[in-house]
Design a protein around this nucleic acid. Structure first.
Lengths: 222, 222
DNA sequence: GAGATATTGTGAATAGGGTCACGACTTTAC
DNA sequence: GTAAAGTCGTGACCCTATTCACAATATCTC
């Protein structure tokens, strides 16, 4: 179940969910074929990059025709493991955490927030969007088979909770706190730092006034 | 005020706010000097990368000693234009938007959310965290000198509102909707797509099981 | 003050990703 | 059926960013 065709660049892997979503849109619109050029305009990624990305999975298209939407979709569904749902725990039901619980896009994809934790007794015992909220003290006993955690707690709590998560068998963390957590190397941590994203945007605007460039993703990379 | 010493790589520019924040922490802890190695452990960025980043601004450190925290901090304050505050408008006071308004980190830095807009009459006229909320119909007349917008609206609204923002003189957009907005090339757009971030994390965990790697920023370097 | 230790700044090598441009092949038009 | 138009897949190139590794220089120890 892991890394047999490890050749896919990380940058490509990051774009796959994006492609998948837009292909889904097209499919719902009844579109049967799509060219890299069309897709490029929709997702704002260069068409050559799209073709290269797809090519890592083999020859999925047809010359002079483009790509068959349904076929491509089926292919990505397998590749992205859409069928095997990854269980996610959300830690910290503040404003940001609540936003996550309301976003129902999770259900449509390969991830599902199964449960949430918070320290506030008023929240404990309720549920938001069908996701039950437990007390943070019960983290270890309730976590179950969740393998990924979304960390939306105050940054002062981040390191301590991260350690408990690792102890309980979590293998990935999406860290929204400004704190840089220290965990064993086998744990994958992605940081999304909202303050930094905003500051970086401002910095780019001031120092790199663009007049004919393209925008980049998120990212970052970014 | 724009791009006189354009030599700073974008990847470096994105790390500057991170460095700045950790240097601030150190300063508050009363630390007077810091080495690239120490900083590396704190921010999870390779020490050689940190030294290279700093070197774009000249020789800020001292061999055999490290960097003087206060000096470095003062230098970054200038470089990041901490003094000149960029006014930000937040569009869409839902869960995610509310989270932004409560985050007070904005005040400490070079950006400040000055006003917010929403379509819900119950929210209009109130304020959250001192930020007044106006009706979205008043966008054009109230926007004033805000030059950056945070877009946290339903994705169906994203393109339409983006066009109105551009019309009103916005130069940068931090887009949290899954929609890819189309704007003139001079406008800088950064996408932060929470669903994709989560899916990408899951994909990496499944296909790139790490056993001795390091994590990256946001990504996924990210 | 001399030797040991620490740490920077950077040239050079490496890695990683994006884009161009074109041959090959398919579809479309007539 | 033939010519024109469309589109993929990819070799070659370029650009950006990261990392290594070490000379230069500073501090620390005694």
């Amino acid at each position: 179940m892991s890394g047999e065709q490890n050749k896919i660049p990380q940058a490509t892997a990051k774009r796959l969910p994006l492609y998948y979503r837009f292909l889904n849109n097209l499919h719902h619109q009844g579109k049967q074929r799509v060219s890299s050029k069309e897709l490029s305009e929709a997702v704002k990624v260069d068409s050559a990059t799209i073709r290269r990305d797809f090519s890592y999975f083999g020859a999925l298209g047809k010359k002079g025709y483009g790509y068959n939407v349904e076929y491509l979709l089926g292919f990505f569904r397998k590749t992205l493991d859409q069928d095997e749902v990854t269980k996610v725990a959300l830690i910290g039901v503040g404003n940001l955490g609540t936003a996550f619980l309301h976003y129902n896009f999770m259900k449509n994809n390969n991830t599902k927030i199964e449960l949430a934790f918070d320290a506030d007794p008023k929240k404990v015992g309720t549920d938001i969007g069908g996701v039950p909220i437990y007390h943070i003290d019960q983290l270890e006993e309730k976590l179950g088979s969740a393998s990924v955690a979304i960390l939306t707690v105050p940054s002062s709590e981040a390191q301590g909770i991260a350690e408990r998560l690792v102890e309980s068998g979590i293998v990935g963390v999406l860290n929204f706190t400004p704190a840089r957590i220290t965990v064993p190397e086998r744990i994958r941590v992605h940081h999304i730092d909202l303050a930094i994203e905003l500051q970086a945007l401002v910095y780019f605007i001031k120092h790199y006034p663009l007049e004919g460039e393209h925008e980049d993703h998120n990212g970052f990379k970014e």
